[in-house]
Design a binder for these strands. Structure first.
Length: 478
RNA sequence: GCUCCCAUCGUCUAGAGGCCUAGGACACUUCCCUUUCACGGAGGCGACGGGGAUUCGAAUUCCCCUGGGAGUACCA
């Protein structure tokens, strides 16, 4: 690869940063990193009606959170700006004009009605719809006449019929018959460029060397290559990634849960886990070790080895990976990340030390951060809600009643400030009750059920110590 | 309809003619550990969509079918 490697991600701010866009961004970033190139962010906000500043901010924030720092972009600037398409409006007509002068484009005065009629006609004949090209050979006089009628022309690219072949970085050789494309519009009659034209002009001007994007763009590629050729520009390398599909093999949409990166974060997914997971959709590590940092992945990344098929977004593995990343967090880091999910509790009930201890003993089964909300509920409040099954399966049993009666008295003298001591105390309790043929398990369950209202949860000694004598006694008697 | 892309366990994938009685990860499952849940450890279940062709030999190459996906706009 001779020239400088320059890749870009060009999201359109019509929604929060989509997980699919995030993956495309990641692969571009990985490719740039691997080849010591530049990663560029360009905002395609041409469609003013659907663009929103709030989404631009979301895209910035999400990309940053993902750790995908861009070298050039709307906020940081760069040599080839501006990087917001809305600020580049005046540069497109110029290039359209050049194409007209060189005979690669022409003005089209067809009305939407005429165009619709053509389309319906081809549909009925069951052939590929191709614009007839009837405006291609309009004389100057005819054009002048049309203009006088007040018709504003669009500009169409005159497509030459030929076989177009290119070597896709992930799909391999791709072939197209351009006669099936038809002369397409590059400038709308309102003066704004169409997507296919704007991207090419921007990519040429920004010296983009490699275009890695979703395979939904494959059919745009021949049109774009034609424009590159007509403009006499270097044609970049293309690589089309498979799509990310929902488990039902349809397009991933809100119906399937979160689609935006920020939504995953709000649900309690760790951004590192998300990136790692998404990298594994299409890419696989050469050493078989799946948990890796972005830098490690970049070292090992080879675009030509990326899978060319679509992949399905399954939560099972994401969940597993998220749990792995949670395990790697220090308790201090975890405490900070957990805070947003503990809003409904009065944290002042707990000292800093007890709060830390609580996190330590409840973190093990966490899959997503928001799991903490439920996992920790019995630590707060004076009384505790007893689950119905716990009541009938445990508390109502005679053994439990015996145990609790015993404990209610004994606990008054327990040392709740020392977890180790508590541990010994309970061990003694188990052995002594065992002599009265009460199983250790039954002893522990009875206490756990009465104090937490559940049959599962954190180490019971830690729970008792964190709750403290007052709350425990109250619950034992409640 | 037309054009294009894709096709290995349920899912993500390894595999680029013999190393494959197809490997790994997640999920599922059995057992162990254990005061519960979980974690962890040791096993198990489980796939080359179908049919031709090339070859001594095909998951790997070619063709057809089937299935899935995408595009088909003066949207991006």
């Amino acid at each position: 690869m001779p020239q400088e490697i320059r890749v870009r991600i060009a999201p359109s701010p019509s929604g929060n940063l989509h997980i699919g866009t995030a993956r495309t961004a990641l692969f571009n970033y990985l490719f740039a990193k691997k080849h010591h190139g530049k990663f560029i962010l360009r905002i395609e906000d041409t469609d003013m009606e659907r663009s929103d500043n709030e989404y631009i901010k979301n895209i910035f924030d999400s990309l940053k959170a993902l750790g995908l720092a861009w070298d050039e972009g709307p906020d940081v600037g760069g040599e080839y700006g501006p990087y917001s398409q809305s600020e580049r409006f005046d540069i497109y007509p110029k290039y359209a004009q050049i194409l007209i002068e060189k005979g690669y484009a022409y003005e089209c005065f067809c009305t939407p009605e005429e165009l619709d009629a053509e389309r319906i006609f081809s549909q009925e004949k069951k052939i590929a719809h191709v614009y007839s090209g009837k405006c291609k050979n309009l004389t100057e006089n005819e054009k002048e006449e049309l203009r006088k009628q007040g018709i504003k022309p669009a500009i169409r690219f005159a497509v030459e019929a030929k076989n177009l072949i290119f070597d896709d970085l992930v799909k391999g050789e791709l072939k197209f018959d351009t006669s099936l494309i038809g002369d397409f519009v590059i400038m709308k009659s309102n003066g704004s460029p169409t997507y296919n034209f704007a991207v090419v002009v921007d990519d040429i001007l920004m010296k983009i060397s490699h275009i890695l994007r979703g395979e939904d763009h494959i059919s745009n590629t021949p049109k774009q290559i034609l424009i590159y050729e007509a403009l006499g520009a270097n044609i970049p390398e293309f690589g089309h990634l498979g799509m990310i599909l929902a488990p039902d093999r349809s397009k991933l949409s809100k119906r399937h849960g979160a689609t935006g990166v920020s939504e995953f974060v709000e649900k309690g997914y760790l951004i590192d886990a998300l990136v790692n997971f998404v990298a594994l959709l299409g890419w696989s590590p050469s050493d078989g070790v799946e948990i890796k940092t972005v830098d490690e992945i970049a070292q090992d990344f080879r675009i030509r080895e990326v899978s060319s098929s679509n992949s399905i977004f399954e939560y099972d593995k994401l969940n597993w990976m998220n749990a792995q990343y949670i395990k790697k967090l220090s308790t201090e880091e975890l405490k900070q990340k957990l805070l947003p999910f503990l809003g409904q509790y009065d944290l002042s009930e707990l000292s800093e030390n007890k709060f830390t201890r609580m996190v330590e003993v409840t973190r093990e089964p966490l899959v997503i951060l928001s799991d903490i909300t439920d996992a920790v509920s019995y630590f707060f409040g004076e009384s505790v809600e007893i689950e119905p099954e716990v009541q009938s399966e445990v508390l109502d049993k005679d053994v439990s009643q015996v145990v609790l009666k015993e404990v209610q008295e004994l606990a008054k003298n327990w040392n709740f400030d020392d977890e180790d001591a508590l541990h010994h105390t309970l061990e003694e309790l188990r052995t002594s009750l065992k002599e009265r043929s009460i199983k250790p398990k039954e002893t522990m369950w009875a206490i756990r059920a009465a104090v937490t209202g559940r049959v599962k949860g954190a180490d019971i000694c830690a729970v008792l110590a964190i709750l403290g004598k007052e709350k425990v006694l109250k619950r034992l008697n409640g």
